[in-house]
Design a protein around this nucleic acid. Sequence first.
RNA 1: GGCCGAUUAGCUCAGUUGGUUAGAGCGCGCGCCUCACAUGCGCGAGGUCGCUGGUUCGAAUCCAGCAUCGGCCACCA
Length: 879
Amino acid sequence: MSPQQTDPAAISDRYEPAAVEERWYPIWEERGYFRADPASSKKPYSIVIPPPNVTGSLHIGHGLNNTLQDVMIRMKRMDGFNALWQPGTDHAGIATQVVVERQLAAEGKRKEDLGRAEFVRRVWQWKDESGGTIIRQLKRLGASCDWSRLRFTMDEGLSRAVREVFVRLWDDKLIFRDDYIVNWCPRCETVLSDLEVDREERDAEFVYIKYGPLTLGTVRPETKLGDTGLAVHPKDKRYRQYVGQTLDIPSVDGTVTVRVVADEAVDPKFGTGVIKVTPGHDPTDFEIGRRHGLPVKTVIGFDGKMTAAAGKYAGMDRFEARKQIVEDMKALGLIDRIEPYRHAVGLCYRCKTVVEPLVSKQWYVNVKPLAQEAIKAVRAGKIKIIPRGWTKTYYHWMDNIRPWPISRQLWWGHQIPAWYCERDGSIHVSRTDLTSCPDCGSPVRRDPDVLDTWFSSGLWPFSTLGWPDDTPYLRTFYPTSLLVTSFDIIFFWVARMAMFGLYVMKQVPFHDVYIHALVRDAEGQKMSKSKGNVVDPLELMTKYGTDAFRFTLVALAAQGRDIRLSDERVEGYRNFANKLWNAARLVLSNLDGYDAAAGRRGKPDLAARWIDSRLQATIGAVRAHLKAYRFNDAAGAIYQFVWGEFCDWYLEIAKLDLYRADDPTRRVATQHALVSTLETTLRLLHPFMPFITEEIWQRLPHEGESIMIAPYPKVVRRRVDPEAEREMAVVMGIVAAIRNIRGEMRVAPGLTLSAIVKPGPEAPSALVSANASLIQTLARAAVTVDPQASRPRSSALGVVGGIEIYVALEGVVDLGAERQRLQKEIKRAEDAIAFGRAKLARPEFAERAPAEVVDKEREKVAQQEALRDKLVASLSWVG
RNA sequence: GGCCGAUUAGCUCAGUUGGUUAGAGCGCGCGCCUCACAUGCGCGAGGUCGCUGGUUCGAAUCCAGCAUCGGCCACCA
């Protein structure tokens, strides 16, 4: 490396991120640094991205999620792994379809007006228009994905994977079609899985209805029209006589015929201990009905309106019908009483419409056997969930898993590969499209439903790598190394991937699962569009720089705790980037005459040995923290090292050699220490702050073409130097003690103090003497070392680790003024003491005030006494 | 109802397996435009670690109970 010199004026004293970010990302991408190579002999390391909604845009959660992944993948890539970060996007069935439906609505059209084929074409068009946004934004974030491998859940290849898995599950009898009670959203007109139903507490009326000889309570009187039974607990003596009877109950619209059954599901202590059984509109009732052979009567339709079976209420909205029926029952004297009641109602996760339990024919995956394997994999440690606490949640959900309804009444998605024979209705599931019945040659009709979005995302770790084909990527990178995701999709996604991965590949889809927390606003509120408190990551990146934004998220990403993001935080880390920038500016502008070889030959002085030792410790800490996914600790370790040690101490010390041209050997040695420390630090920091580190690194003497592919720092044992650390601790302690006195005594920073240092057992004279000039400069004090010294008059005392330091005050501070100040403070303290004592002495206070108030007052007095004593002591030395 | 988490400085949070004087950022006070950086430098104030009890030589840390807040799950109509 040739000697170089940079004029400090040539580099801005502010780090300006925009230009740097724009310059480096395209270079990295063009040079192919993001690409993994399945033929490489390096150890593979892979991450699949949680696919964002293809038509979405980057929100703060993506910011955190992808920054963490980028930190890991960049670190591993630098550390010599064959690293693949597999990117892609999700078609997000219902979400995307709703957006396009809204666009149509703006044109005054409904999707039915276009027809299915045309509608789907419109969605594809929308996908093509908006699909690039989130990818561009991820690039803006610095994400080092292998973009040449970008996948989409509805790509030809991934669709083939979906169909293949569907067929295999069908052949294995793990997919079935059944009439079952489902969560139905009357607005979206589709079935929802249990996970897609949000619960919300609502106030309701608990209506006690007279049912012939019995009385029972319900919050849903309108479903009375669909009652086909009554149920009581088998052991409930009160109602035993009715069990088995069929009752004709006079009701609002003629009589209702119900059979009384005994079922364990009934809680005899709740309400009257009798429940009405409406198998058509309640999941519990549906189960009871199945157990006892009660018929299903559907009185509410898929549109949320009462059906023809509801008699005179037919066509009425379900909630209006509820009111009307209560009115009618009141009129007929069928209501015993009404009580207020608060309970959870199910809402559609997309549109918040109250979900209607309805019986309909849907496709299901019997996930129970798959869940068993998924549980085993975690128990056996083949999948490690971090933080550990989430494993219990995972087990609990897997243990209680129910069949997964996978059909959705949408047009956007993977259409179910099943055909019905027009002749006998037989079902034919096929890898290829059918035009006629394989059994009888009759015409066939394809099932119109599409699959739940999570079906295709569940295949993501292997479908993106080429499955069902046996590709080099699949062989090299499956199972993946790490999955980084948020806790809110553990069940939706992580659990499904675990089940599908084990079922299809016979191997876990990932080894480690890191679950990160939620990013909230500065007040701790969940960000939401309706609250208007959404922080736009792009704005933050523009305002403070991408590196600062990334570093903020990482620094705040403590395990198991939500992140409160505020501008002040990002600003703080923007300042950190600026600090680093200026440290680099100092180094770069003092490299004239630099000779790397000569620098290496030189003998490092104490400070150089110290900073090198601290650097090794930092490298070790960062590696350990990243290994354990303690991102915040890793970031904190670097921050502390760069600012608190390298800048605050080493750069100040280095200036001594840099600015003094009388010792060229020392200068070159120090230049070398500076370059080497800074260069290593940049590599250590690169995964967190990719842009600024590359920019500075390129300007520094370095080896290689980019920091992105430079080696990640390793701890060099022989550079760990406990002796240097001990000795520097003494020097720093003395400096701090003198600065402390300067601060307390309000001595101007420009004034040079004179200090006598009396070494103690921990700090031999030789050590202090050897570093006297260092101390002198850092503390701005003329230092005399004297083991026999005793404290002179008019001096301030500092004590550190057995060393005594006497700082002369004569001529430096106005002793008279200082005396006055001390006297004034002593007086104030004494006044406070006197006041406090008087208060305590007053009987009405001492006897009547609460004990803690009295204690507090006593404490205050004691504090003031201690302060006074300290001031008096100071005064004696100043006097 | 079940499970989980949180409670530490004015604010937001760190604090690995129990171990000297409990840390950081922001904010606050004092002094500084010291030739890398005022997005900065030096110094300082500020904490009964939610409460009660227990284990221990020793507890912010482990155990039990309580209080407050938050989250997830759940078919009590």
